[in-house]
Design a protein around this nucleic acid. Sequence first.
DNA 1: TCCAATAAGTTTGATGCCTGAACTTATCGC
DNA 2: GCGATAAGTTCAGGCATCAAACTTATTGGA
Lengths: 390, 390
Amino acid sequence: MSRPQPASQHTVRRHNSALVLDAIAEAPGSSRAAVAARTGLTKATVSSLVDRMIGADLVAEGEAQARSGPGRRGTALHLSPTGPHGLGVEIGVDYLATCLVDLTGRVRARWLRPSDNRSSSPARVLAKVATAVRTAAKQDVPIGGVGVAVPGLVEVAGGSLRVAPNLGWREVDVRGELTRRMTLDVPVLVGNEANLAALAELWHGDVAADFLHISGEIGIGAGIVVGGALFEGVSGFGGEIGHLSVDPRGPQCACGSRGCLERLAGQDEIVRAAGVSGVDELLAGLAAGDRTATAAVRSAARWLGVALSGAVNLLDLPTVVLGGTYARLEPWLQEPLHAELDRRVVSAEWSPVRVVASSLGAEAAVRGAATTAVRAILADPDPYVTTALT
Amino acid sequence: MSRPQPASQHTVRRHNSALVLDAIAEAPGSSRAAVAARTGLTKATVSSLVDRMIGADLVAEGEAQARSGPGRRGTALHLSPTGPHGLGVEIGVDYLATCLVDLTGRVRARWLRPSDNRSSSPARVLAKVATAVRTAAKQDVPIGGVGVAVPGLVEVAGGSLRVAPNLGWREVDVRGELTRRMTLDVPVLVGNEANLAALAELWHGDVAADFLHISGEIGIGAGIVVGGALFEGVSGFGGEIGHLSVDPRGPQCACGSRGCLERLAGQDEIVRAAGVSGVDELLAGLAAGDRTATAAVRSAARWLGVALSGAVNLLDLPTVVLGGTYARLEPWLQEPLHAELDRRVVSAEWSPVRVVASSLGAEAAVRGAATTAVRAILADPDPYVTTALT
DNA sequence: TCCAATAAGTTTGATGCCTGAACTTATCGC
DNA sequence: GCGATAAGTTCAGGCATCAAACTTATTGGA
């Protein structure tokens, strides 16, 4: 835990810079005067801070605003489209995905290349990632930071991967390795895939500031967002929901425990129980009203409901977002899942839990990784501004 | 959610005042110079801030420190014993407990009076509480705030009680009512009993900054502390662990669900399964090696383990604190509980979950309530200082 | 066409808080 | 008693905000 820092005037400017930038991001096209009203700062202060940030190319002026009444027209402000960009990389089991976003989070470019990462050594894969980063950096936009999404437990503070079962990796210093290999002097952030997907949902989806995002591909991962911030737990391992025990006397799981959620409601189990070869076939079966497929999904939904009701009770969350494969199954999950939630969630009486499908699809994690990189600048622009102005 | 506030010089002083006060609280008897070194502020700044706080009687000077080498001796600083005190009240099912603590959290006085709150109306009970507050305020120490612990779901921001099943209360504006009835102009904070007990453990117990505190009296409640702060969830209803489903096909619970933790590991169930009349008899049986009693406790421990492993996985917590009745049963819970935790917690491999008994006993909640009131002043002393100096 | 009203944005002086350095006070060991 | 050392205070300097006056731009009516 970091010792609290003393504050000085510099801290004030730092805080207010972020405040102003946030106001501009929330209401693009605002004038300085509007930002002042919104933030509670004076026009003078806003002018001074905005000028600094224009100098660092974080903010750009647009043309004068149209207005109805009399008075001088304000100059529109927005996040600069030529400002620092965020580069996201996702290390999947059998692919590498890359994504470049601008300050507003809009996707500017995107790559996807197959890569069998399971059978390669971490060093080889990270070399590929570094190449991908260098390629992406060749676009003529400045890179402000790199975000990396990995399917495993990440020690967030150190940016190192503890274990990624589906990659067969252990103790890989992703941040260190990558910082060394890519010839680019920007911060590298490493995060768990599910957590970054949840952040993407927060920033680009249409849910509020508090929810649990659950996605099931090969494993089941959850990202918990509380008060508009990711809940990471003490060392960043929060949201491990896959091996939550939903049926203590249930079938043996690979992890050594019994009746884990992943074992009972994971994609593998659904596909197996439905007697199909993959998710596409499963969806076809569901659409055709196949009894076995429907029963398999309903069963998974009920176990999901047990696990999610526990999480919701513990964390007091109003919304559950279904991501990944679950998003595709949403129409069939909805009803049996809700039945369990309504029954088991204590506060459901006052405020029933909302269940929605993610609108972002498979790209959520890369996008989250890329946006995290630029969000880090928006959340504390002053260091960036200071270096940019020298 | 409150809109972020602009910062000014005043914010700086506010922040640094809290920083200085925290340093003094953490290392009582430090000199100004030591505080400066600890906080990273200059001696000049610390002097100025400390003088203000001495003026408001938050800090007091002790005698000069002993020292080994040459040089002027520093004057010891500590939280003023005559400064504002916190008054805690706990509304139990059949008692009212009151507790007065000074700035350091030390208990200065304490009352306990039986009161059948279940069969009284909220208004009558709160009138009694107001009387208790007035009585306690007659001590010749200034009261800086009142904390109230209630066994139910509390909307923290508004200080109002949504529901308290064991009291049979619903929608009671505890803060409003009490503020009106007690003739004392200080802030009133209302919190859930389990959450306040967890805070007491944080401040007065011997555990670190991250843990889950679980206590089982009539219901089972948990307080979650992450990074030295209470995790309250979106509306303050976090930590509802009692109706976590640990055996989805298990026995029917009063709440409508099945296999809830409270139903399988609550005090009532343990006592019932052991065939005894109460906890004291149960403990006697355990000490005597009674087979039925031991089996009853072991069974409860295993269900507790299932629930706690889920919570620990989700929240990534290193420690579980057993409070209330569970603290008394700790020697018999420890082994079967650990067996489940080691098996089911994903990160147990790196860092096994620690399970410890609370050292605070039944008084945890009142103490937490009282200390919360003074902690609010310590966490942001400037408003108090400003009013005290005028 | 000009001018009052209105609003955006800038300039300027005051204020408050922190900092660094010089200074005063207190203590130890010789 | 004197030099070394450390605590605590004083004071000028810097910096960021604020309030208020001022400049600039625009509308709409006389």
